[in-house]
Structure formats: C-alpha cells, structure tokens
C-alpha cells in the first residue's frame, strides 16, 4: 500500500484536517472493492458463457450442427435435435410480439398523449406495471384454467370453418401454441408498453405543439409526428420485448404442450427451448444433460444477440434524442 500523500499537509491553524493514514488506507481499500465488484459482473457473464459452453462441449462434439437441424429427441438412442424447439421459440415469440407490440404501443400512446388526466394515467400505468409483477407460474396456472377454456369455442369454430388456412389447421386439444402465445403476449406487454412510453415521453413537448399549431388532428400528430420521432425507442421496446419472450419459461412449459413438432397451426402443441430445459432437465441422465446444455447455449446465444441489439438501439436513440433537445 502506498504511503499517505497527505501526511503533514495541514497547516497548524487549519479548521479542517487532511485524511489520516488510516482514512487514506480505508479509502484505497474501499475503492478497490468497488472496482472488484464491478469487475465481478463482467467475470460473471464470462463465467456463465464458459460454464454452459464447457458443459455443452461433449454434445457439440457429438452432434455438431445436426443438433440444430434435426427434430428427434430420443434419449435411448442418444439422438438429439432441437429444430422444433428453435422453431417453437421463434414462432411463439414472434406471434406474442405482434399482439403485445400492438397492445403495448397503443397503451403507451394512451398513457402519454393526454387521453387521461395525469392521476388516472398513473393508476392505469400501475395496472399495466402490476402485470409484470405476477409470477410466471401464476400466469401458467391462470392459462390452464382460464385462457384454454375461454378460447376453446373460438378455436373450434375457426378450425371448423377456416381449417384450410394453415394457421387453424389443427383442433385445440388443450395446451398449445395459442394459449401459450396469449399468455406470453400478456407477460411482455408491460416491457413493450414501458419502454415505448419512455420513448414517447422523450419527444420534446414543442414538437407536438408544432404539429397542433399546424392544424393537425390528434391522430395526425401522433401517427405522423410523435411515433416517427420516437421510432428508435419503440423499435428497441419491440426488440427487448422479443428478447423477454424468447427466454420465458414456466408459463410456456405449462401451456405449450411440450410436443416435438413443427407446425404453423396456432392450435397444435409445440415446444420451446426454455420449455424443453424446464421439462427435461430435472430427470435427465448425463448424456441428455450435455445435450440440454447445448440447447441452453443456443438459447443463450439467441437471447444475448437479441438483447444486445435492443440495448444498443436504446442507448443510441436515447443519446440522439437527449443530445438534440
């Protein structure tokens, strides 16, 4: 440890005094501790990648790329493939994003564009935020006993009369893509709505005033001025919402049916990477665990890429807008 550079720095009649050696030492120690703590975060992420990657290594060596393109999951013959799970993860997240994107953006507009008096807007915002507080398993339970019975009549009707459309190609037997997607959309709605609200709030008020001053109606101002100006933030809301949907586990494991198949139909059971991990991991043997680690690595890679893109867009647009105003 370096010696105290402040030693003897105080004139005799000063009302303040320089740090004593002990104080100087504890300052150094505390500063290094914070530095270590910050470095721990980086080390943690590296360790996560290294640990999951290391566990997956044997499976990667055995299955190579065929793991990503094959659709059998057979523990007995040790043949593993996760194409249906990759498909299910992307498909369910995309469907959820379409509905959550529409609802989330509308809610964000509803809350930021003077539809409600500020007090009521606060209450409504809390209602939407509370959705994020409901645990995933509770949504799963709710999905099983509320959503599935509720959509069954509509699903049967759609399948009967519009069955020729691939989307409605199979009948709903209980768990399936449709209830899973609905619950997933509800779960990512708060994320999309919150980030979109931030983006819309960042638009300077005079921009909107200028639009009104030109004689624009409320919706002309919203659609032609506010939303395009906030487009970067809204885009990042969508990307981060998508990222959240990709990794969502419990509600999907409970609702999607965990079936190893690729189908366009909304009513057929499917599977996702996260649901596969949740349902197979607890009972898996050593070889299967390695394959599951490979699947986890794929999920990690997809979500990391999506999240990094989303965070990056968000940083970029926030800097640009706040730099301008």
């Amino acid at each position: 440890m370096a010696s105290n550079p402040f030693a003897g720095a105080a004139p005799a009649d000063a009302i303040t005094r320089p740090p004593s050696s002990g104080e100087y030492l504890s300052d150094r120690v505390f500063r290094s501790l914070t530095l270590v703590a910050a470095a721990i975060i980086i080390a943690l992420v590296v360790y996560i990648l290294w640990e999951i990657g290391g566990q997956a290594m044997p499976a990667i060596r055995d299955h190579h790329v065929s793991f990503l393109t094959s659709s059998t999951w057979d523990v007995q013959s040790e043949r593993f493939g996760i194409l249906p799970q990759i498909w299910g993860t992307l498909y369910s997240s995309l469907l959820a994003l379409i509905s959550a994107g529409f609802f989330g953006l509308t809610v964000a507009i509803f809350l930021t564009q003077d539809f409600l008096p500020p007090k009521l807007a606060m209450v409504f915002r809390t209602i939407i935020e509370m959705l994020a507080a409901i645990p995933s398993v509770v949504f799963g339970l709710w999905g099983i006993f509320v959503v599935i019975p509720a959509i069954r009549p509509l699903a049967d009707w759609l399948h009967e009369y519009l069955g020729w459309i691939p989307l409605f190609g199979t009948s709903l037997s209980g768990p399936g893509l449709a209830p899973a997607t609905i619950v997933l959309a509800i779960m990512i709605l708060p994320t999309v709505a919150a980030i979109s609200q931030d983006a819309l709030n960042l638009v300077p008020y005079r921009t909107k005033e200028a639009a009104y001053g030109m004689g624009a109606t409320r919706w002309e101002a919203i659609l032609k001025v506010m939303v395009p100006t906030a487009a970067g933030g809204i885009l990042s809301a969508m990307v981060l919402g998508f990222g959240r949907a990709l990794g969502e586990t419990m509600a999907l494991a409970m609702l999607i049916g965990n079936s190893n198949q690729i189908s366009l139909s909304l009513f057929s059971p499917a599977s996702t990477l996260a649901a596969l991990l949740a349902s197979s991991f607890p009972e898996a043997g050593r070889i299967e665990v390695q394959a599951l680690m490979y699947a986890a690595l794929v999920l990690l890679f997809i979500t990391l890429v999506v999240n990094i893109i989303g965070t990056f867009i968000l940083n970029l647009t926030q800097r640009r807008i706040s730099g301008k105003s």
Partner: peptide, 20 residues
C-alpha cells in the same frame, strides 16, 4: 452487461448454477 443481464432468461440462471 448489467443491462443485458436484465433480459437474461431466468431458466439459464438455473442451467448455469446447475453446472457451476
């Protein structure tokens, strides 16, 4: 990385801790 970790799938935290 902290921002990216907020979007880290919770199941992967389980996988990681299982391994580690």
């Amino acid at each position: 990385l902290a921002k990216v970790l907020t979007g880290f799938p919770s199941i992967l935290a389980g996988v990681f801790v299982y391994a580690a």
